[in-house]
Design a protein around this nucleic acid. Structure first.
Lengths: 346, 346
DNA sequence: CTGAAAGCGCTAACAC
DNA sequence: GTGTTAGCGCTTTCAG
């Protein structure tokens, strides 16, 4: 039962006729309380609907069981699926989540965001913002000086900070290799904005795989998009023009790929016969595009789960005094989901 | 600058040679401090990188400047866009967000979720979970007994609790009326799952509008989907069968509508000439469907903003002692976005 | 204008 | 087993 006003330890103690200390022992399941006393106190707690104040506890224990999450772009599905994974795991592990969202992906001044999380005694912080432009370089200097552990959800920061991410480079390679395996040779690319590390990595994967196959990726083979549908259409039309012999295209995300499928359809370019298409991200809807889209699947939900799990491990280790040397560095492997858009039929 | 270990008020006081009280006055911008003292203390604060503990403050002030948010289905775009709106407004108003997500939309036992928020001294709670089945009836009994204000992001709870939502019923009417205006007469409907209040409301809007136009919506005119693409396809095929004379369809969300457009295309059903289509939600991608989809737009971002704004107003009013009678009840009006999928050409 | 004392709600450390 | 004392970091009295 939830009570209108806050019941305190003291009141419980008074009603139960014991000291606040004993009440404390009971709510913390300490062994050194006699069964009768425990039962009695327990009963009073239930009757009064007493709940210990997490705030007071945080203050005395110097632990809040709270994780700070810094994200950006919640209006896109990727970041929110990551968050979705985090909430579940956090709940499971008994941590609450304090959420902050940057106004833009490339927001620069984020020190006050960290501050506000630390002011609230967050036990650890998850930086779930993609690396765009220079938005991380200075951050990487800041992070080691923080009093709480931070884990990055972005590719290798070229430092010794803990991180977890999907291997975008390998994803790019997988997509391209798959198209090569299908017999496509003139493989174009529509990238994300190159200020994004992940866009660069996907593009490099494409480029290197072609090179390994003895094919050179000239500048006319690719166009830069900005992840959005609109940019996908523009990029595709430009690519058709500057690379007319193209027989397949690796698109850096599914949203742009969806538009490309539609434009191709309208322009009577047969997919996959005349144009193989592979996307990236593995959005649920990509299975319903026409034709169904082959894509590189990243499990954002798991990414979020894992981030929380790892961070909590670091926190607890630090707490127990175990080597705080748990420097998590995980590069998760994406998965190629093969559908019709890339299967060259006989 | 961020410091590795927490600097306390006391330390600042010691270094500055004043009492902790004076430090407190300075950080709270109280007028009763001499300019010199203030400057001196200010300098020490900067130098030491002192930041007051929000936790200690919460404890003494009985206010945490924290809002609890209970959401569900973050892996879908709607809930996350709402959240996106909340983070911005909360930041602006100086509140932090404590995030909880229900494992499922129809999670029943949520008392412990409220508890955990209250344990952490949230100043108010936003219930951003759609009404599904009976998941709210008992909640509405609980809410008035809570020690903190709660605001609902769902349609009229038939009680006196504050809420904000989009008018789903009117949205359904707008969509249907628009199709009628375009000269369509046999207007079918693919609804969301009817355990959802919003699905029922949209359907009712469709039904009533048809009735007002002297058209009866028989059971064969509609099929129930479950919001997903897959269900959309199934529902559409069934509807084609049981309502072959249908000349337009109002689909309860854009995701299902997108699949319907594709199926129609493949089956050589011309949209909009042979079949007018209107969706619901106003997803960004609906503008890129083929043909571009007419849809009922709800601004989720604004919904989230407004929720935070209203809740904070209630909180501050309560704090100032102003009539806690600010019972917010807002039904926002959705907006019809007309695109090609519903324009009957000459 | 400034400081001393008290206490928010809880728990660690030590008595008994 | 249980109570007492002290104090987490801050702010609200109330003196001076």
């Amino acid at each position: 039962m939830i009570k209108k006003s806050r019941i305190t330890n003291k009141e419980v103690a008074r009603v139960a006729g014991v000291s606040t200390q004993t009440v404390s022992r009971v709510i913390n399941n300490r062994p050194d309380v006699s069964p009768e006393t425990r039962q009695n106190v327990q009963a009073v707690i239930e009757r009064l609907g007493y709940r210990p104040s997490a705030v007071a506890r945080s203050l005395i224990q110097q632990r809040s069981y709270t994780l700070g999450v810094i994200t950006a772009g919640l209006k896109y599905i990727g970041p929110s699926m990551i968050l979705n994974g985090m909430t579940g795991k956090a709940e499971e592990l008994g941590y609450a989540l304090l959420l902050k969202e940057l106004p833009r992906f490339d927001t620069h001044n984020v020190e006050h965001i960290f501050q506000s999380l630390i002011d609230r005694h967050a036990d650890g912080i998850i930086w779930a913002v993609p690396e765009v432009g220079e938005n991380q370089s200075w951050l990487k200097q800041l992070a080691p000086n923080l009093s709480v552990p931070v884990i990055f959800l972005t590719s290798p920061p070229h430092s010794d900070l803990p991180y977890i991410d999907y291997d975008n480079y390998r994803g790019g390679r997988m997509a391209t290799q798959h198209l090569l395996d299908q017999g496509f040779r003139k493989i174009g690319h529509i990238s994300g904005p190159l200020e994004w590390l992940s866009a660069r990595q996907r593009k490099e994967g494409w480029q290197d795989t072609l090179r390994d196959a003895g094919i050179e990726a000239t500048p006319s083979c690719w166009v830069e998009g900005n992840w959005s549908q609109g940019s996908g259409e523009r990029a595709f039309r430009q690519l058709l023009e500057q690379y007319p012999e193209m027989d397949a295209v690796f698109v850096a995300n599914d949203q742009m790929a969806s538009v490309i499928l539609q434009v191709a359809y309208r322009e009577a370019i047969m997919v996959p016969q005349e144009l193989g298409v592979v996307g990236f991200d593995g959005l649920v809807e990509s299975a319903y595009y026409w034709p169904p889209l082959t894509t590189v699947f990243q499990d954002f939900h798991t990414l979020g789960c894992t981030a929380v799990k790892e961070l909590v491990e670091i926190i607890e280790a630090k707490w127990i005094g175990t080597a705080s040397q748990i420097t998590t560095r995980l590069l998760l492997q994406p998965e190629l989901v093969i559908r019709e858009s890339s299967i060259k039929r006989g």
